[in-house]
Amino acid sequence: MSAIDKRFKLSALHRRILKKPIPDNIGYGYCLGGMAFTFFLILAATGLMLTLYYVPSEAEAYKSVQKITEDVPLGWLVRSMHKWSASLFIIFILLHTLRVFAAKAYRAPRELNWIIGVKLLALSMGSGFTGYLLPWDQKAYWATEVGTSMAGTVPFIGEYLVQFIRGGREVGGETLIRFYSAHAFIIPLCIVALLWMHFHIVRRQGISKRL
């Protein structure tokens, strides 16, 4: 470690981060957001692993998930971890939101970070919704049928909205690919971008003091 550091001066480069003094009045309530982030990393890692076996097509999706749970070594565990960390991710985001609200830490000058946080919560739930379809089983199909039909209740543009979300008139192969793309690429990229802002703003503004 130190031999590498001597040559590349890595620790000097990150000195500002490594040696940053931290206020000593922060309790364990402050780690809720960090826990949520930990679960996000686990989601990213297990999700990437699942893409190695998952096939997002109408004919193959169910079989490939079956293969992951029954055939692939430890596939059941990776899938289980992905599913459970998604729930824990949402739980910790909610707890983090509660704590931030209770501390009134959304007040000026932190408005923007609060808004980013709400967007992150919404995106995470969207990720959960799109991911729910991917096993392509009864539960997934009907939950998506109901969920996407909700957009159809909007007056005038409802019919168009539903087709936009589903990629067609009915929930089918196009919907599956769309949701896969959203779940595996579009939403995670948005989350990463927003998280980057979220953390940078915290570093700029410092941790909010307790009231």
Binding site: Q66, L77, Y132, D137, Q138, K139, A143, V146, G147
Partner: peptide, 20 residues
């Protein structure tokens, strides 16, 4: 608590969905 595989899609069977 390992998630179980659901049944394959069957449009003729009525199903009561349950979201997350």
């Amino acid at each position: 608590f390992v998630p179980e595989m659901g049944r394959p899609i069957d449009l003729s069977r009525q199903y009561q969905p349950r979201p997350e």
